[in-house]
């Protein structure tokens, strides 16, 4: 009997421990999310406060947008070709190759375009943001701004978040265009599908709302990854190790959030289009 009681106590303690760990994780997540939301809203409000930071906005748009164009084109063209090839092989079995264009178009415009662009730009620009801000924090450059009576959040963060939110839909537009070009080259020029059928079917099934959906998602992704990476970088603690950890956390969290948000946004936009067709 005492053996049974001991085992029961052990089990109860284990359950308590598991529940406590889960609760701690949830509390930690809620607390971190709250701090992130507060940080982001403060930064956005500061963007619309004098002195306006237009110069910084242009600089960051150039960095996030312009300098990402090449890598976006490169990944876009290969994504378009790879996806087209897979879809072509599948549709060939059921003799529906005429639908390769619209299938690829829908997939790229609604899902792969914004998600892949978000991930590439989060890895490139988001990582750079977190590392740059983290370095500024540990080398006291942010403190220097504060003692010079310059609001660090207004000068460093606000323009980055706004720039990412503007640049992301443009980059996604480029990705979609280039991916469709890749698809056209492979399907029409290499696999010899009729050009008129490819464009006609694509134009019939792919409407502006699908492209809008991708662009809306891209705007949200840009906002979210830049806010996360800036938050992680801004509150970096420790030296070079802290900067590395903050960058890693910022990029990983951004990517996870892009995938999670993609699902919810997809449903939200779908509902919106059903209510307001």
């Amino acid at each position: 009997m005492s053996e049974f009681l001991k085992a029961r106590d052990k089990l109860n303690k284990l359950i308590d421990q598991i529940v406590l760990t889960i609760l701690e994780l949830v509390a930690g997540f809620v607390s971190a999310s709250g701090r992130l939301v507060r940080f982001t809203s403060e930064c956005i409000a500061l963007f619309f406060t004098r002195p306006y930071r237009w110069r910084e906005l242009i600089i960051h748009m150039e960095f996030i947008g312009n300098k990402s164009v090449f890598i976006i084109c490169l990944t876009g063209i290969f994504t378009g070709m790879a996806l087209s090839f897979q879809v072509y092989l599948g549709f060939e079995i059921v003799n529906a190759t005429s639908l390769v264009g619209p299938t690829v178009g829908l997939g790229i415009a609604r899902e792969l375009g914004p998600v892949l662009t978000g991930m590439i730009v989060a890895a490139r620009a988001g990582g750079a943001m977190a590392a740059r801000l983290g370095t500024m924090r540990v080398t006291e450059q942010i403190d220097a701004l504060e003692v010079m009576a310059v609001r660090p959040k207004q000068y460093l963060i606000s323009p980055r978040i706004i720039a990412a939110s503007i640049a992301m839909p443009i980059l996604t537009g480029v990705f979609i265009f280039v991916a469709m070009l890749g698809s056209y080259v492979l399907v029409v020029k290499v696999l010899k599908l009729d050009e008129a059928i490819f464009w006609d079917k694509t134009a019939y099934w792919l409407n502006p709302n699908h492209i809008n959906e991708g662009l809306i998602k891209a705007t949200v992704f840009g906002f979210v990854f830049s806010a996360i990476c800036c938050f992680e970088g801004y509150y970096t603690k420790g030296g070079a190790r802290g900067v590395g950890e903050a960058t890693n956390r910022g990029v990983v969290l951004s990517m996870v959030m892009i995938i999670i948000l993609d699902f919810f946004l997809m449903n939200l936009i779908d509902v919106y289009y059903k209510v307001f067709p």
Binding site: T139, E140, Q141, A144, E146, V147, M148
Partner: peptide
């Protein structure tokens, strides 16, 4: 804070 001129430990140059 504009009354202060601060030199940081490692200068904290941008």
């Amino acid at each position: 804070r504009t009354k202060f001129g601060v030199l940081f430990q490692y200068a904290a140059l941008f």
